[in-house]
Design a protein around this nucleic acid. Structure first.
Lengths: 198, 198
DNA sequence: GTCTATACCTCGATAGAC
DNA sequence: GTCTATCGAGGTATAGAC
């Protein structure tokens, strides 16, 4: 069985790996850097992980798990009679909060996913699919209620919204305004667009 | 002066490099792969370029140049009395067309920019800034005319729209519908949002 | 569990023949 | 202009002492 300190070091390795993958990408980040940041030597990593691939795989999984939890938590907290706007607003808030405030795992998931080895991507894809299905259900409920616009393909709406939310990690600047205000602005734009009503 | 075939090989190298950077990223793409795809040996690349950095630098520059030209062309073709919606619709169409239809250079610009060496990024940043300023002028004109929503920060609107448009390269699937319809749907969503009017 | 030492490979880049 | 051959650096991963 794993000892206390083993778990500790393993988690710290994952944390530092996530941070480095987030800011420098997967291929650019070396095991020596991850080891340095954690305070151990590169060779010692192999006590905790079998390969660099296994590290990125776990970082990706944790990232999507954190975002998924943040979203579900907010949606589940709503009352039974919540409107479509309230439900999707809660999901947007959860997603942005998970991605922007919660940190390195979810950001690494967005930024480094495209750079991960194909084997890792393909294994991780089921987790992404599950999260995507969750959103699909939210949007579909809104359509059934007649709340979503009917002149656009639903898949395009969903992909556009989710990828736009994801990409905020590339440009969101917390020094230019609170996350609260930011989430509000993004929600307004997604809900009703950038133009004044005609 | 450069001979015919020199220009030819050099351009083919850039094209293959753009394609590989787009799909595999900068660090993952090796000079041997670029050479293979072009049909020459790795060492021969150095007759045309001084370093791998110089290749990505030129790929990035061409990418933003192509998109910028596509956008300006459509906006300039509009009549004097065009509305804000018509102007920004033309810019969106140009941007999406440049990014999605025009191919590997613009997509590589979006995908591989974050992975490029800092020296390259910093040199390329002025080109990005110029393109961003162009969009800023379009949005600002719309604000002056009172057409844009006033309850959101303009910088957030601009970053949201541009990054959302950029990220379509990650998920747009030409087999699921024509680019024409796609551009129309995206424009509707950006202009008026995903919800039906209240 | 972590260390040192190192094997092995692949990368970007160079040199010189053709 | 392109080739072959190769260098030096730095990467992942392994072996065995502690």
């Amino acid at each position: 069985m794993a000892s206390e300190s083993e778990i500790h070091t393993r988690d710290r390795l994952l944390l530092e790996a996530a941070r480095l993958f987030r800011y420098h990408g997967y291929a650019q980040t070396t095991l020596r850097e991850i080891a340095d940041a954690t305070g151990i030597k590169a060779g010692s990593i192999y006590y905790h992980f079998d390969s660099k691939e296994d590290i990125i795989a776990e970082v990706l999984d944790r990232g999507i798990q954190m975002v998924g939890e943040a979203v579900r938590q907010r949606v589940d907290a709503l009352p039974e009679n919540a409107t479509s706007r309230e439900i999707i607003a809660a999901a947007i808030e959860g997603h942005l909060w998970g991605v922007l405030h919660h940190g390195d795992f979810s950001s690494a998931n967005i930024r480094a996913y495209g750079q991960a080895p194909v084997a890792v991507k393909s294994r991780h894809r089921t987790a992404r699919r599950a999260y995507s299905d969750y959103w699909h259900k939210l949007f579909n409920d809104a359509i059934v209620k007649g709340d979503l616009r009917k002149d656009c393909n639903l898949d395009i709406i969903q992909m556009f919204v989710l990828s736009a939310l994801n990409w905020t990690v590339e440009w969101y600047n917390p020094q230019k305004g609170s996350l609260r205000v930011f989430v509000g602005d993004i929600t307004k734009i997604v809900f009703d667009g950038v133009f004044e009503r005609r």
